[in-house]
Amino acid sequence: MTLAILAFFGVLSILLFALRGFLDQLPDVFASAGRARDAWHALKQARSEEAQREALQSAPPSDHQDEQPPAAA
């Protein structure tokens, strides 16, 4: 009986030690996930800004840009 009690508490202490190690790593995991999310949003924003710049550069100039204002008589 004593051996069973010792075995049970030994296994329990190992499980608690493993759980503590896992819980100690969670803040780092959440911080890494936040940094990855921020990097993803920055990448998407940079791509959309680049696409907008390319669209503006490839757009044909409007006819009104090259015209001079009419001269006053």
Results as ranks from 00 to 15, higher is better:
F30H: 05
R47Q: 15
A18R: 12
A39F: 01
F22N: 04
P69H: 07
D28H: 05
L43R: 11
A51C: 00
V11P: 00
D24G: 04
A33K: 05
V29Y: 04
S32P: 00
A33C: 02
A36F: 04
W40G: 14
A7G: 01
L19T: 02
P27S: 02
W40N: 14
F9H: 10
E54P: 00
I5Y: 05
P27I: 05
V29A: 05
A18L: 15
I14H: 03
L6V: 06
A59G: 02
H64Y: 15
K44Q: 13
A36W: 04
R37H: 14
F9T: 09
A51L: 12
S13A: 14
T2L: 15
A18Q: 11
F9S: 06
Q25D: 07
L19Q: 03
S32W: 08
R20Q: 07
P27Y: 02
Q45I: 06
Q68A: 08
R53K: 09
H41A: 12
R20S: 14
S62T: 11
A55M: 02
I14E: 03
L43E: 13
A71P: 02
A59V: 00
A36K: 08
I14Q: 07
E49M: 11
A46S: 09
E54A: 13
L15P: 00
A39Q: 03
A51S: 04
G34V: 06
D28L: 10
I14A: 15
G10Y: 03
A59D: 00
F22E: 10
V11F: 07
Q57C: 01
W40P: 01
A42F: 04
L23N: 05
L43V: 06
E67K: 15
